[in-house]
């Protein structure tokens, strides 16, 4: 669990309920022997800066490039993306999933919303909690879009994507009691 800034506690609780051992990562010495990494919601510019200043960015990037499974929510989605459409010029991303991301795609906090999401392979809708959420754009056919949200304009934005063992969501499953996405991630490591 990357725990430099943001909502790592809720993810930790969710994974511990499912029986996983969770270790907090703040520095390079926390990285060895991880089976997977979770990058939680928070402020992507802040997390990106703290990854650099703690010298964690490069070793984590190497682990990811060698196939470390990853789950990214909100800011985590931005950090795992190939491209950030409106980020800061110095904002670095891991480029582990071939999507382009638009930060705050749904607007400011007053536009933050909850909606029921239909997710591929899930029988019942999933409670989607979107907070100043990013939107994705799949750049390669190998990116599976597992859920989307339709804007009032009719345009659809992917909000849950998967490419091999990298899973990203615009919304916050960790802020709900629904553990199905955490379970899904553990099953597909």
């Amino acid at each position: 669990m990357l725990a430099l800034q943001g909502a790592s506690r809720e993810h930790t609780t969710a994974f511990e309920k499912l029986g996983a051992n969770v270790r907090q990562v703040r520095q390079p010495q926390d990285l060895p022997d991880l089976d997977a990494i979770v990058i939680p919601g928070g402020e992507s510019t802040t997390i990106s800066m703290l990854l650099e200043s703690s010298n964690t960015f490069d070793p984590l990037a190497e682990l990811l490039a060698n196939g470390l499974p990853a789950l990214g929510t909100c800011a985590g989605m931005i950090l795992l993306a190939k491209e950030v459409l409106d980020g800061r010029p110095d904002q670095r991303c891991f480029g582990q999933i071939d999507i382009a991301v638009r930060r705050n795609a749904f607007g400011r906090q007053v536009a933050s919303f909850e909606t029921d999401l239909d997710i591929e392979n899930l029988d019942d809708p999933f409670p989607g909690v979107f907070i100043r959420a990013p939107g994705a754009l799949a750049l390669e056919p190998s990116v599976e879009v597992l859920a989307s949200v339709k804007f009032d304009s009719g345009e659809e934005t992917p909000v849950f994507c998967r490419q091999e063992n990298v899973l990203v969501t615009s919304f916050h499953p960790e802020l709900t009691d629904d553990l199905r996405l955490h379970q899904f991630f553990l099953e597909h490591l």
Binding site: A3, L4, Q5, G6, A7, S8, R9, E10, G41, G42, E43, T46, C74, A75, Q109, S112, F113, E114, V129, F130, I131, R132, H172, L175, T176
Partner: peptide, 14 residues
């Protein structure tokens, strides 16, 4: 309440 408190959650540690 969830999206309002949720933004505060995202600011934690900052």
């Amino acid at each position: 309440v969830r999206v309002k408190r949720g933004l505060a959650d995202m600011l934690r540690g900052g």
